[in-house]
Computed example of a mutant assay.
Amino acid sequence: MLRTPGEVQRDETVAELRRRLREATSRATELQGRLDALATVTANLYYETSS
């Protein structure tokens, strides 16, 4: 079944938005891991300096 030009454009737009969402989700996951590591280091340094 043939798609109209409008449907083709819509599908391309949806595909691009999905790609961008995957990238953003991946980046957010990476940054959350870094933030968790930083929080762990900060907590350890605080514990060591307050003892």
Rank of each mutant, 00 (worst) to 15 (best):
S51V: 14
S50C: 10
R22F: 07
T29P: 05
T29Q: 15
A24E: 01
E23L: 01
L45P: 05
E48P: 00
Q32T: 09
S50E: 15
V8L: 02
G6T: 04
L17C: 02
R22E: 07
T42E: 04
R27T: 13
R27D: 11
L45G: 05
S26H: 12
L17S: 04
R34P: 02
E23D: 10
R20Q: 03
L38H: 10
R27G: 10
V14Q: 09
G33M: 05
E23G: 05
N44R: 15
E48D: 13
T29E: 15
T25S: 10
S51K: 15
L35H: 01
R19W: 00
Q9W: 10
T4D: 01
A43G: 05
R3T: 11
R27N: 13
R18V: 08
E12P: 03
T42A: 10
T40E: 15
S50R: 12
D36Q: 09
L38C: 08
V8Q: 03
V41H: 05
T49N: 14
L45Q: 06
T25E: 07
T49V: 11
D11E: 12
L17I: 01
R3F: 13
E7Q: 05
A28M: 03
R18F: 01
R19L: 09
L17T: 00
R19C: 01
Y47N: 12
R10E: 09
L17H: 01
E23T: 01
R34Y: 06
R3K: 14
L35G: 03
T4I: 00
R3A: 13
T42R: 08
A15C: 07
D11C: 09
V41M: 10
V41E: 12
D36M: 05
A28W: 04
A37L: 08
L35K: 00
L21Y: 09
L45C: 06
N44F: 11
T29C: 11
E48G: 05
T42I: 04
V14T: 10
D11F: 04
D11P: 01
L17P: 00
T25C: 06
T13I: 08
L31D: 00
Q32A: 10
L45T: 09
T29H: 15
R3C: 11
L21T: 02
L21V: 01
V14E: 07
A15S: 06
Q9T: 11
R18S: 07
A24G: 01
P5E: 00
S26Q: 14
L31C: 03
N44G: 10
R3L: 15
R3G: 12
R20Y: 01
G6L: 11
R27K: 15
D36N: 02
A28Y: 00
V8S: 02
L38T: 12
A39P: 02
R18C: 09
D11L: 10
S51W: 14
E12D: 11
Y47S: 12
M1D: 14
D11A: 08
